[in-house]
């Protein structure tokens, strides 16, 4: 048996979350006393493939001719690779593609699935995996009772580790079925950091009074290399684009650093951001509920505090 990681290339390269999943796979394989294989597809350069080896895969199965957004084809691809390397545990990242592929694979292989795992499985007394539930307000220990298992890893849960290894590459052939979903158009936003992957996020709420005041938020974010986010009413009134809305009904994020500026800290907002490692709150109201969830707080007016913070950061960076 072995452990198989699905490494989804994003425009020909592997994102940090893909390398995290590879590291996770290598660690699971080690704990089970076996090897970690990876499976990928499409146009991926040798240099990118080598990264999978460096992050713990001993063999990379590659279907170079497949190029698809169709989760049906991808689940057939992974199942083919799993059969080739006799994998009992299959892993991927809990990202957009993983969310479509992992459940398909689970149904295809009758393999119990845990999505969004945030730690390594334990194997004494059953195969158990931890994951956040109730939008981060709690955690659950899930037991997978089937022989085959599928796990998707929550991004930013374990750091990728370059162990300097190399992988043997094997071309993977098979019938992956007909493509039923086609991409008509891809629209890229330029110059912004994608929220779910961001390690730092600067977020602002209704306390900022109007869209014209976001300049200082963007300046702070760019100085930190952070993505920008907002509370739900801010997106609903149209001050900020919808993809920036974080919380229970928006994007759930777990960056290393989260700035909440002029956001009250309603339970539905906290639900999507409370996985953040460090939370900084800036709010005029010392009674704002957000302070209870914060690591650092500044009771003050954002219009004065944020420019001062930006100056202090510039001085710090030199």
């Amino acid at each position: 048996m072995s452990v198989l990681v699905f490494s989804n290339p994003n425009e020909g390269s592997f994102a940090k979350s893909a390398l995290e999943a590879c590291t996770y796979g290598a660690k699971v394989a080690k704990a089970l006393g076996t090897d970690c294989h990876a499976v990928t597809y499409g146009q991926v350069s040798d240099a990118e493939i080598a990264k999978l080896g460096a992050h713990g895969a001993t063999v990379v199965h590659k279907a170079g001719s497949l190029e698809t957004p169709d989760s049906g084809q991808l689940s057939k691809l992974i199942a083919t690779a799993a059969a080739a390397c006799n994998a009992d545990v299959i892993l991927c990242s809990h990202d957009l593609t993983g969310k479509a592929v992992a459940p398909r694979l689970s149904a295809r292989l009758k393999a119990g699935l845990v999505t969004g795992a945030n730690a390594l499985p334990t194997t004494d007394g059953g195969f158990k995996v931890n994951k956040p539930v109730f939008s981060g307000k709690a955690f659950a220990t899930e037991v997978i009772t089937s022989a085959k298992k599928v796990i998707s890893l929550m991004p930013n849960s374990i750091p990728p580790e370059n162990t300097g290894g190399t992988a043997q590459v094997q071309e993977l052939a098979g019938d992956f079925g007909a493509k039923k979903v086609t991409v008509k158009e891809t629209k890229k936003r330029t110059g912004t950091i994608s929220l779910p992957d961001a390690e730092k996020v600067v977020s602002a709420g209704r306390g900022l009074k109007g869209p014209e005041n976001w300049g200082m938020i963007e300046e702070l974010a760019s100085l930190l290399g952070a993505a920008t986010a907002c509370s739900r009413p801010v997106a609903d009134i149209g001050w900020r684009p919808h993809h920036e809305h974080v919380g229970q009904t928006g994007v759930a994020i777990r960056p290393n650093l989260y700035f909440a500026i002029g956001i009250s800290g309603a339970i539905q907002h906290l639900a999507g951001v409370n996985g953040s490692k460090v939370i900084v709150v800036i709010n005029t109201d010392p009674e704002a509920p957000f302070f209870k969830a914060a690591d650092y707080g500044v009771v003050g007016d954002a219009f004065q505090v944020v420019p001062k913070l930006t100056e202090a950061l510039k001085a710090f960076k030199g």
Binding site: S106, G112, L113, F139, A140, T141, A293, A294
Partner: peptide, 23 residues
Amino acid sequence: PLTKTESYQLPPAKAGVKLVDPD
């Protein structure tokens, strides 16, 4: 079923906010 939930945990309480002077 192929999985079951064994137990739940609540996240550890935050240590408490450290306030910094706005100036």
